[in-house]
Design a protein around this nucleic acid. Structure first.
Lengths: 182, 182
DNA sequence: ACCTGAACACCGTTCAAGT
DNA sequence: ACCTGAACACCGTTCAAGT
């Protein structure tokens, strides 16, 4: 029995088969080659679409969370982790793409998605909740933490229903460590 | 040209081929089946060995860092991230194994490796550097951060030479957030 | 311009047969 | 007990041929 389409979402976009895809669309196995020169090109296109969707979800979360920095940060982190756990295979693909010298268009798509987070960091700095400095650098530990939480969930070390609480804990912990030790 | 064995280490243990492996060892392609019933069994065995090595490296790092909690924590975090970036493909395999209901032996191996970190958390709690509570829970955000940093490096978003500084920053930040707000 | 379908070199897995 | 090698059903990729 071939892996159902749903299996690709939850775990293992790597094992997506071009031939099976073509079969499902009802076209010959050579046809996709006209649109995607090779298998990797298809995966890159999926990753690019993934970044666009991630960016849109982050934007929506931030915009819907009011004006306060902390609420916006919580919302963004929750949205990111939700995306990461719902589409773990896709996120893996998106990161793997960056790793092997992102194809340019892929890199742009990624930058657009992360722009939302950088704006958020800048707001936090303006409000004095985060230390000053280049936003990319200041946000790095924060982003690593969020990404790591997502990894714990997709890795099965944390149950999905503990997710929101863990994210809230992590954000609160992070902000506590960011306050000037005045 | 077949992927060289070195390629498996750095990126993509998933694409390890049983047939190629057998060819390199100079044995027929059916032979490995006697030792590993299927491909996943081989990957599980590799993951199990990976946990054993990770545990040993963590133990060595902690033991070689003196008695102080903070120095030990820094050493353990650095060792973990070093392992994660040097053998990214192996770590991915180790986590993927946990995800699909670890085969028992794999779970045990993982627990042995992480026992080093739990002991460390307990020391931190005893010294008052970390909040009280179940070590598994207290260490979760910390572990997520370390794991996330490793992901940033293997994902190419942070250069390897920035790694040590980033880890030190993250640990310092975390400990600052852990102090009682007295 | 786009699709088809045979062909090639690879897989993992199964299994009868050898020693 | 362990290995061999043919067989089966799958891949990705290439390419001449069709419309």
């Amino acid at each position: 029995m071939p892996p159902s389409p749903a299996r690709w979402r939850e775990r293992g976009l790597q094992e997506l088969s071009l031939r099976e895809l073509a079969r499902e669309v009802g076209v010959s196995h050579g046809a996709p080659r006209r649109h995607f020169p090779d298998r990797q090109a298809l995966l890159d296109a999926l990753a690019e679409a993934g970044f666009a969707r991630l960016g849109a979800e982050l934007r929506r979360a931030v915009d819907g969370a009011g004006e306060g920095f902390e609420a916006r940060l919580q919302a963004a982190a929750a949205a990111y982790v939700r995306f990461a756990t719902r589409d773990a295979a896709l996120l893996e693909l998106m990161f793997a793409g960056k790793h092997r010298e992102a194809s340019g268009k892929l890199h742009e798509a990624s930058n657009r998605a992360f722009a939302v987070l950088l704006e958020l960091i800048e707001q936090g700095q303006a409000e004095g909740a985060l230390e000053p400095g280049p936003p990319e650098r200041v946000g790095l530990v924060l982003f690593a933490t969020i990404q790591g939480i997502a990894a714990l969930v997709t890795g099965g070390m944390v149950r999905a229903d503990q997710l929101d609480e863990l994210v809230a804990d992590a954000i609160a912990h992070f902000l506590r460590g960011s306050r000037a030790p005045a």
